[in-house]
Design a protein around this nucleic acid. Sequence first.
DNA 1: CTGTTAGCGCATTCAC
DNA 2: GTGAATGCGCTAACAG
Lengths: 330, 330
Amino acid sequence: MKATMKDVARLAGVGVGTVSRVINGVTVKPKTKEKVDAAIQELNYTPNEYARGLKTKTTQTVALILPTIWHPFFAEFAYYVEEFLSNKNYKLFLCNSDGKVSKEKEYIQMVKQNKVDGIIGITYSDVDQYISANLPFVSVDRHFSEDVCYVTADNLVGGQLAAKELVERGSKYVAFIGSYSEYPNETTKRLDGFIDYCLAHEIAYEILSVPEPYEEFNEHLEKFLIQYPELDGLFVVNDFVALGVIDFLEEKKLKKVGVNCQVIGFDGIRLGKGHKKMLSTIVQPIKEMAEFSVAHILSIIAGEEVPKRTFLPVCFEEGVTTFKKLQNND
Amino acid sequence: MKATMKDVARLAGVGVGTVSRVINGVTVKPKTKEKVDAAIQELNYTPNEYARGLKTKTTQTVALILPTIWHPFFAEFAYYVEEFLSNKNYKLFLCNSDGKVSKEKEYIQMVKQNKVDGIIGITYSDVDQYISANLPFVSVDRHFSEDVCYVTADNLVGGQLAAKELVERGSKYVAFIGSYSEYPNETTKRLDGFIDYCLAHEIAYEILSVPEPYEEFNEHLEKFLIQYPELDGLFVVNDFVALGVIDFLEEKKLKKVGVNCQVIGFDGIRLGKGHKKMLSTIVQPIKEMAEFSVAHILSIIAGEEVPKRTFLPVCFEEGVTTFKKLQNND
DNA sequence: CTGTTAGCGCATTCAC
DNA sequence: GTGAATGCGCTAACAG
């Protein structure tokens, strides 16, 4: 039915060891290699990865756990992870956890099952207990209690930067709009940074922080905006929510974004790629985040040491939802 | 180091066969099952999937090949595929082909390598030669020459529907705007359906069909719109391109969409979920497409017969880029 | 350099 | 019911 190594060996008139050698590129006499290659060709032979994996205890496979591939930020991240992995001849398992611990746990199990060599995870729920330092795991955007490796954009600086840009572009009274999850994660640092800057520069600010999930978010938002009508600069926790806020402002005619109010998002998703109406935002280096995540997980799998913490720089990208910069007083 | 079946057997004081039986739910005396379960618990044992796969010749794994997970339509599709697969206890490999045959081929190889049980593929390039009826493959949005199973939205009806809606909502002179790929696929039927309707109802129409990739698309578009200034209804090949067209029209002030010109897209991606400014579009039943794709590939893997062709209905979703319907003369 | 052999961890015969 | 034995397809260690 399906050709095995033994078939190839028989046809080529050699031992199975030799076949294994030519496949794995070990030194073999050119003449015999030819014979083997010919036999492989003729039988259309492909090594059985499961048999190989059983011996070598390696799967050339990594799992990626994320909340949902629907979100453009995660999709873009997944794209790059797959690309970098593929370059290294690794395959990628995709897991949408939907924030459900059971599913995250299920995938984490896979390394014990010898089904994957390691895991890259964006998990916002409580999986601490399953993660330990000896599990090949790279966490993204989330700092675990134990010393597991993690890579993240510099959310603190991002928050500071957002405040700074709003202020330097003319806002006098700013606000952070976002949500907080039940479980701690790096994204809360966006708010921390925002506050840092306002405090240090004595800028008046307000905060709207709604608990997830976003039930009645717009109701909270409306009340907030009515309560503080003088706000002229908004930093929204991510681009997705920011777009929603902008629509809401326009619909309710509460503000004219880009005219009497600025809005800055966070993520830098390429939703509007090619579109002119761009959101001003703090851009996360998604590609680099994926690159480091992959590099680190592969290093861990190889048994090498990796830096526990990798912070990647963010930058401001100007769209049409902020004013032009007045002066450059750096 | 890592516990094996033998360790469990020894600790429980039974044979490995018995351990295997309790794991696979075969009849075992309750008393011995207890002992085994206890041993499994104590050793924190998990079966090695590769060893099992080597015996059973099954991997409980399916690969999904698509052009890029970046595109919201594919991301949404992937989300559902993973969900349905997960329900059946299957895992998902993700492959971004970027339209590169080499990568598609590489993943198709995986079934020969015993690394996946089957493949679901959205491939727009020329992989016909690698696909044959005896490969467990379900094609989405693409009809292969051989009798491989495929599922697709009814693009022909979708094209007709788009034309119908434009006309019934007041357009007198309509156009199809899109592109065509080097390789045939179901999406070209959108144009076919569009023409069908126009011909049958004697509606004047034009066609702009730019070859992929989209180099200089906007140049072609501008020339086209200037050449036919009387156009008042546009059917664009998909939502992504449609949004670009709308931006272009507004930027160049060629038309006022929703006022003196209608635009209908195709796909029904939930980009604008929660946003008010929605694109009118022909919605593909993404979830159902994923559901059938998964059901079929699992059936094929199980050796069952499946329908070769599955057409799923589309529907029109009203946004703000079309006029209100004047009358209902069905 | 190359053929032979011993497992990798598990499911599945067989006898008992 | 259950234990022992066999082999899935492959790699690696061992002789030759």
